[in-house]
Write a protein that binds this DNA or RNA. Structure first.
Lengths: 136, 136
DNA sequence: AATCTTCTTTAGAATAATTATAAACAAGTA
DNA sequence: TACTTGTTTATAATTATTCTAAAGAAGATT
């Protein structure tokens, strides 16, 4: 459980002004035990439910993008009509249950080491992500 | 080089009527040496250039979806504003050059074996795909 | 505290990818 | 040929996301 005060400091340290909206979003996103997968629209609705106050959709987009840029959120590479984000920014992989459109975490130790034996001149590897699609 | 006649048979065997548009799309997509990564909009423009005739955008969508459903095209899981497809439907992985928004094939032997040490009851693995993001 | 600058929020408009619609048309079949 | 069914088409509708510009809030300066 992170206190409001701690979020304020974290925001300041990232040169993001600690506005009421950003603090609320922090509380909804980061005061959790388990990792959280969400779309912007999930988050938008959740904020209304949890805090009783509505934050403009544009602000939700702005904030999620800001947090993503600062490395507090990770974008999950799946094809869906909406973009999924993850509060777990450590290196890890995903199951995607195609039928139920549901994401499930794979701990890094659930996946053996991945060796990439090819390289592209002038480019370096930024991330290696595995998506395991599941069917019935 | 596959002949028009062969495409017609393949379409019939998939219970897709061999229309002029579908045959043209087959020729643009599948008469290639190398694997081909594309978005709908890429394909739409390419058809105009290669065949001189314009196929309605809706038809391009319909056809790509039909081919995908039949297993002749693979959808590549990356987050982009557009959906990418691949004519190589075998198991393989991708580099994605984030800056240039370009996909590069990784042969299966370029990536070491991937062990998944977790399973979800009632579900089986449909595919395992690795996306390696590249930066400068 | 008052002022000033800069950043942020906001509603709504704009954009862009994709899907839906329904009429015209072409393919397969009897 | 006539009939049925599947396909194409232009266009409208939908949906996710980004842009815009004005109002508001935060931080710094006096």
């Amino acid at each position: 459980m992170t206190s409001k005060q701690e979020f304020i400091e974290k925001l300041r340290n990232s040169s993001l002004r600690p506005t009421k909206q950003r603090i609320n979003i922090c509380e909804v996103l980061f005061n959790r035990d388990k990792t959280f997968h969400f779309t912007i629209s999930d988050l938008f609705n959740l904020i209304k439910d949890k805090t009783g106050e509505k934050i403009s959709l544009a602000t939700v987009y702005n904030t999620v993008h800001a947090f993503h840029k600062k490395g507090y959120l990770k974008e999950i590479p799946i094809n869906s009509n909406q973009t999924y984000f993850d509060t777990n920014v450590t290196d890890h992989h995903h199951f995607f249950d195609v039928k139920e459109e549901k994401l499930i975490d794979l701990k890094n130790e659930d996946v053996g080491p991945i060796e990439i034996q090819k390289s592209i001149p002038g480019k370096k590897i930024k991330s290696v992500e595995v998506l395991v699609k599941l069917e019935d």
